[in-house]
């Protein structure tokens, strides 16, 4: 019997990343732009999706994939009530969606009749950062009541996103939240990341976000990547 050292150097998320790539190709082929919304529970992901639907419903055809750890359809029911196709993916207790789960979600959506798919990831600031889904944009919804130290505590999440939404701006007067300190952490981790301060309660900031999203989607249609 002999002993041998085998060099491997293989990324632990490589299997997931490969399926994420297939999801992306499929979305591209259908001409569907897609975003992955991540946040802690209660940050306002569902509220933000509902506001986005309101802002875009006469412009883009939207579909929504809802990730939930339990088989409750509270969130997807809200989306359906807003008149958009929604699919509920039950992660069976998992703290994140992964690329295989999104693949199954996409199977249940009429992709050829859609322009934009919004994925609501499971509420969690740790795990979703590691599992790429294949969506075109990764969006983090931060919210004022969570506190200004979250970039420092969850660096991987803040680092990996393309867009930062700062929700519940209406609560800023009532909560000790040092915006400078918060933005400093964001800046170190993710220099120049675009951010949208919004309030899903009042609707402030939503139209700016919707315009930007439409522009991103148009750019995508023009370039197909």
């Amino acid at each position: 019997m002999s002993k041998e050292r085998v060099p491997v150097v293989e990324q632990i998320f490589s299997a997931n990343d490969q399926i994420a790539m297939l999801n992306r190709q499929r979305l591209n082929a259908a001409g569907v732009f897609s975003i992955n919304l991540m946040a802690s529970p209660g940050a306002g992901k569902t509220s933000f999706i509902l506001r986005t639907i309101e802002g875009l419903k006469n412009i883009l055809r939207l579909g929504v994939v809802e990730g939930d750890t339990a088989p409750v359809t509270i969130d997807s029911d809200l989306i359906l009530a807003a008149g958009m196709p929604a699919v509920q993916i039950n992660t069976g207790g998992d703290c994140h969606l992964d690329a295989v789960m999104l693949k199954e979600g996409l199977n249940q959506l009429p992709l050829n009749d859609l322009d934009l798919v919004i994925v609501e990831n499971v509420g969690n600031l740790v795990c979703p950062a590691s599992f790429k889904l294949g969506t075109h944009l990764n969006v983090l919804v931060a919210s004022i009541p969570e506190g200004d130290d979250k970039p420092y505590k969850y660096p991987a999440m803040y680092r990996g996103v393309d867009v930062l939404v700062i929700n519940k701006m209406d609560l800023l007067p009532y909560i000790p939240f040092k915006m400078d300190y918060f933005l400093q952490g964001v800046q170190i981790l993710n220099p120049g990341v675009i951010s949208f301060p919004v309030s899903c309660a009042t609707g402030d900031g939503i139209s700016k976000w919707c315009h930007w999203l439409i522009a991103q989607r148009n750019h995508f249609i023009g370039h197909g990547d």
Partner: peptide, 21 residues
């Protein structure tokens, strides 16, 4: 605050030790 992260985000299987008949 303009800082590059050079390393610290790695996550991979580097190598394995095996036995062979």
């Amino acid at each position: 605050m303009r800082i590059d992260i050079l390393s610290g985000e790695e996550f991979f299987v580097e190598s394995i030790l095996i036995e062979k008949e």
